[in-house]
């Protein structure tokens, strides 16, 4: 029993997209499912040359926020979307009816249709793969050359992520919606 979350030191991201590749490889994401499970956003710099705001040109890696109050879980008519024992938002493909309500309700555009199961799928923090094998890191974290991502148990005060969140300022995306995301962007 843990409460998994992820901290992203996003200003270190160099947009190499190794995380996207590792995720696809680990979780068997189909070819062509670009920016579906996880993605790196590229923000163009604000302003007009030569007065460009270089700091605004950051890359923004993102994925499912594993909300504690997930809108996708609330709207699911068959409880196909559920919180597992580690607080990870998961989809039971046997129960998913593909009504796509969760895709519309998710504020983070984090869900997609997996063409193999013809059900909705999403990031699972590698619960079916790496965590199931007893590993303690996700594929995206493990491969990142600049150590953008830190994955761990938010309930463990000694975990790396807990210490990071205690010592660094951070923000969450669309937190005003009350979704209580468990992805934290370090500033």
């Amino acid at each position: 029993m843990a409460r998994y979350g992820m901290a992203l030191d996003y200003k270190n991201c160099i947009n190499c997209k190794a995380c996207e590749v590792a995720c696809k490889e680990e979780n068997g994401v189909l070819l062509g499912a670009d920016k579906h499970r996880i993605w790196v956003g590229a923000n163009n710099p604000d302003g007009v040359w030569p007065n460009l705001d270089i700091a605004s040109a950051a890359f923004m890696p993102s994925q499912c926020q594993h909300c504690e109050e997930a809108p996708c879980e609330e709207v699911c008519p068959t409880h196909a979307t559920y919180y597992d024992e580690n607080g990870v938002v998961r989809v039971d493909s046997d129960k998913c009816i593909l009504c796509s309500y969760c895709m519309n309700a998710c504020p983070y555009d984090a869900r997609y249709v997996d063409d193999r199961t013809v059900t909705v799928d999403k990031c699972t923090f590698c619960s079916d793969t790496r965590l199931a094998r007893g590993e303690t890191t996700t594929a995206c974290q493990n491969t990142c050359p600049t150590k953008v991502r830190t994955f761990g148990d938010l309930d463990d005060p000694e975990s790396e992520i807990s210490i990071l969140l205690k010592t660094r300022d951070h923000f969450s995306l669309k937190a005003h919606l009350g979704t209580k995301p468990k992805l934290f962007y370090l500033t």
């Binding site: 609330e74 709207v75 699911c76 008519p77 068959t78 409880h79 196909a80 046997d94 129960k95 998913c96 009816i97 593909l98 009504c99 796509s100 309500y101 013809v118 059900t119």
Partner: peptide, 20 residues
């Protein structure tokens, strides 16, 4: 996508907070 699954799991595991 799966209307038969819907008929089964609407009964077995109803999502009572879902408007659908």
């Amino acid at each position: 996508g799966h209307p038969i699954t819907m008929l089964i799991y609407n009964v077995l595991t109803p999502g009572l907070r879902s408007a659908i």
